[in-house]
């Protein structure tokens, strides 16, 4: 009996060590986020300890700052366009890659995946070189083009792996019942993959919204929120920036958690289809 107890104690000691270690890693991952949120609500004009007292004033100031608000709106608009374009490009390509015997499949996958592994700096510089031939695209159009290129990559990969697990018998059953391709897409594929599509859109949106470096190279006089924050980082960080970051971070966390939840749920074969 005592041997059992001992072994149990060893096992739970092992688990406790695992839990403690993992808790430290999670602390590391969320410490910066906590700091930003904390100082967004602290009265001290220069972020630092000790805390000076609770205030929501920085949020009011941030929302009255035309540069910050303008950048926020610009980023939202551009990220929306990029995400929509990326999803629209990715879905048909992913369907073909997953369901059709395609020649040059590896080559196409490399082409699709390329922008993910390419150092972003190099992609940015490549875009700068490209824009020499089309200088009037510099600014908002260029940012959308660049972000679409980057996000279409993994949008395609996520959808591709999702569609690989799609039960092809659904499509075959529908066709057997006399549906043509368009009907099959509308009646079968779209409803079943809609959560994945939304998830991919949300991830692309979040990523395009926060992307800094490529945008910075091709922005011209356009100011996205990351660019504005980068500029402000050159001086002392204003709590106003923390306030707006807090809103963005909480929104990004919510969106990405939602999106991941969908992607992961669907990747599990036991999950209900379309849950």
């Amino acid at each position: 009996m005592s041997a059992t107890a001992l072994k149990f104690r060893q096992a739970s000691a092992g688990s406790a060590a695992f839990i403690a270690y993992s808790a430290l890693i999670y602390l590391f991952l969320y410490l910066p986020i906590v700091v930003i949120v904390l100082f967004a609500f602290d009265a001290k004009p220069v972020p630092g300890l000790p805390l000076a007292g609770f205030t929501t004033g920085w949020f009011a100031q941030a929302s009255a700052d035309p540069v910050l608000v303008g950048a926020l709106l610009t980023s939202t608009k551009l990220a929306f366009f990029s995400a929509a374009l990326a999803t629209a490009l990715a879905m048909p390509a992913a369907m073909v890659l997953a369901w059709f015997p395609t020649r040059f499949k590896s080559l196409i996958l490399c082409l699709v995946l390329g922008p993910v592994v390419l150092p972003q700096l190099v992609l940015g510089l490549g875009f700068v070189s490209l824009l020499r031939g089309a200088p009037n695209l510099v600014g908002e159009p260029a940012i959308v083009l660049a972000h679409t290129t980057m996000t279409a990559s993994y949008a395609t990969m996520v959808l591709y792996s999702r569609l690989l697990g799609f039960r092809r018998s659904y499509i075959e059953a529908a066709m057997n019942l006399g549906a043509n391709e368009l009907t099959v897409f509308r009646e079968v594929i779209l409803p079943l993959t809609l959560p994945a599509l939304i998830a991919v859109f949300l991830l692309a949106f979040t990523d395009a919204f926060g992307e800094f470096i490529v945008a910075w190279f091709v922005a011209g006089f356009t100011k996205t929120l990351p660019i504005v924050i980068w500029t402000s980082l050159r001086q002392v960080i204003s709590p106003k920036v923390n306030a707006i970051s807090t809103i963005i971070i909480l929104a990004s966390l919510a969106l990405s958690v939602l999106a991941q939840l969908w992607v992961i749920r669907q990747a599990r074969p036991s999950a209900r289809v379309g849950a």
Binding site: S22, I25, Y26, L29, Y30, L31, P32, I33, V35, I36, F39, P47, G48, L203, T206, D207, F209, G210, E211, F212, I213, L225, P226, I229, W230, L233, I237, V241, N242, S245, I248, I249, S252, L253, L255, S256, V257, Q260, L261, I264, R265
Partner: peptide, 30 residues
């Protein structure tokens, strides 16, 4: 699933925001 998503989530926050947080943490008066 919750823990996995919790690990990945910070990755989606804009790099400039993450870095500004580390500057607040690591600075001389940080």
């Amino acid at each position: 699933i919750v823990l996995l998503i919790a690990v990945i989530a910070p990755f989606w926050i804009s790099i400039v925001m993450r870095i500004s947080a580390w500057r607040i943490l690591l600075g001389e008066n940080g």
